[in-house]
Structure formats: C-alpha cells, structure tokens
C-alpha cells in the first residue's frame, strides 16, 4: 500500500478530519510515513494548549473530560482529545470505551476524539502520543486534552506531553493515598477531586493539602485543589478557569519556556533512544548482528562492553558485517 503523505498533510492542514485520522493511524504504527508527515506539519503546530487529565481507573476521567469539552465549546474553542487506555499485555487487544462519555460531541465538527490502546513496548506509546498531539495541533484545535490512566506508573508520562496537568482523584480510594506518598504530587498543576458529593471528599481535600505541604506556592503557582462532580458538571467551570489561569501563569511568568524545555527534552530523548532500540530490534540486519554479539558474549569471545561499543558504532556508521 502506498500512502501519499504529502497529500494527507495538505488535506490535514485544510482541516480534513479524515486525513487527520489516517495520519494518526500511521503514527500509531510508528510508520516512517508518519514521521515524514510530522516533519512537514510541525511548523504548523505550537498554538494549542495541551492539557493532561490523569487519574486512577474509575475516577471519572472521561466524564470530566466531557464536561471540560463542554466548557471550552461554550467559549467557542475547538477541542481535540486523545484518550489512552491499557492494552492487554497478552493479546495486545484493547477495549476502548472513553468515547461513550463524550458521545454528544461525536458529531460536533469542533471536536475530534481519538481512542488509543497503550499497545506499549519500546516507548511506542509515548512517541505515538506526541505525534497524535502534533496532528491535532496542526488540525487547528485550540485545546488538546490527553486522558491517561494512573500517574507515575503510566506508560505515557503525561509530564512529557502536557503543559497543564490535572491530577484527578476521588474520595475513599485507598491506593490514591499511596500515589500521593509516592510523590506524583509533583506532576500535578491542578488537583481535582471528583465525586465531591461523596463522604470523604473533605478528608481527601485535607490529605491533598497536607501532601502539597508548605511549598505549595513556591514556584509562584498556587496548585489549586478543586472539588468537582463530573456527572452533573458541578465545579467544572472553576476547574477550567484554573486550567486557563495556569496557562496564563506559564506565559506571563516565562515558565512556559522551562515547561517546553522539559517536554521537548523528554520527547527528543524518547525519539533518539527508541530510534536506536527500534533499529536494533526491528531491522533484520542489525538484529542479526545483535544476536551474533550475544552469542559471542555467551561464549566469552567478547565482553558486554566491547559488544555494546560495536553495536553503537554500527548504528552510527553502518558497515557491512
């Protein structure tokens, strides 16, 4: 199958959703065409505000994202959503149900929703997610929301992607306190407590306050904690206001530069690291050399360091083996 990437990029830049969807599929399968396309459309990116919404399973992320979309749509802004759910490690299959919650926006031309299975291996997910965000950005979405499960252990490190991160929790989830202790607190710019009408919401609020500690505003941003009820939309207006304030804060304080450096440093690292790894594991020639060297180390004909040096050299300056 030959794919005319130039044509797809051209169509995408005209706002063609079909072309965007196609490019996303290519990005997900890590195809060289996708990377070529990203090169072309990259100059047209950079104007979207990228928001990460992350929280444990069952915390109501999709329902909340639906309400956030509503707020932005009411403001006249266009929205792109990437919803990532885990794939089965055994079969590679996935059941992606995040759209259900947002189905009222299915037919809104100002909204584009894409579901992703984490598939995951060799950093493919993180990489594909960057690309899909770029595609939504080039498609002209004002706001891009990346929804991921969990925080910290998640395969998409949201911190590498989003400018503003909303960390979602709900009252009475035991393992949440674990996450707080584990220090993922640092990644959240805004803390939302969903299902705030349940018993324990106040306790969760106090726990978060405590976990945030005294240096909550040390970087000049107050890290607000906001109670929401995603099912009814209560508190979502306030949440979106806080998200927008965070963006303004990044811009006016100049922190946006640090934020970008943080993200692009990580993205570049991922791409470089995994380009090497993929070459090593996917390219049949390199794979042969790799296996040969493994054998040699086994037979003690060489040592791991020498083998590694040879591999790196081969990747940088390919020679016939």
């Amino acid at each position: 199958m030959t794919i005319d990437t130039n044509q797809l990029v051209k169509e995408l830049l005209k706002g063609n959703r079909r072309a965007a969807a196609r490019l996303m599929t290519l990005a997900e399968s890590m195809s060289p065409e996708a990377h070529a396309a990203i090169k072309q459309l990259y100059p047209h990116t950079g104007s979207a505000h990228i928001i990460g919404v992350t929280g444990p399973p069952g915390s109501g992320k999709s329902t909340l994202v639906d309400k956030i979309i509503k707020e932005y749509r009411d403001q006249g802004k266009t929205v792109g959503v990437v919803a990532v759910d885990p794939s089965s490690p055994f079969t590679g299959g996935a059941l992606l149900g995040d759209r259900i919650r947002m189905s009222r926006f299915s037919t809104d031309p100002g909204v584009f929703i894409r579901s992703m299975g984490s598939r995951g291996s060799l950093g493919g997910l993180a990489w594909a997610t960057y690309d899909i965000v770029h595609i939504l950005d080039a498609l002209g979405k004002d706001i891009i929301i990346v929804e991921t499960v969990g925080a910290g252990q998640a395969e998409v490190n949201i911190i590498q992607i989003a400018e503003t991160i909303v960390l979602l929790s709900i009252p009475g989830l035991g393992d949440d306190i674990q996450t707080i202790k584990a220090g993922v607190m640092e990644i959240g710019d805004i803390f939302a407590i969903n299902k705030a009408d349940l018993d324990g919401a106040d306790r969760r609020y106090a726990e978060l306050e405590m976990a945030l500690g005294l240096d909550r505003t040390s970087d000049g941003w107050e890290h607000p904690i906001i109670k929401v009820i995603a099912t009814t939309g209560e508190g979502v207006e306030e949440l979106v206001k806080a998200i927008q304030q965070h963006h303004e804060y990044l811009v006016t304080s100049g922190k946006i530069k640090q934020n970008q450096e943080r993200r692009f440093c990580a993205q570049l690292e991922t791409i470089v690291e995994h380009s090497f790894m993929r070459k090593l594991f996917v390219d049949p020639e390199e794979r042969k050399l790799f296996q040969k060297l493994v054998q040699e180390v086994c037979e003690r004909k060489t040592d791991p360091y020498t083998a590694a040096e040879r591999l790196i050299l081969q990747l940088i300056q390919p020679q016939d083996t």
Partner: peptide
C-alpha cells in the same frame, strides 16, 4: 467486543 479484544483487536465501543 470482548472476544475481539481477546483476539488482539483494538475495539472502540460507542455505547
């Protein structure tokens, strides 16, 4: 949907 997932497909359910 479950069977397709188990067969290794990515299944998007609309509700």
């Amino acid at each position: 949907a479950r069977a397709l997932r188990d067969a290794g497909f990515e299944v998007i359910y609309t509700g």
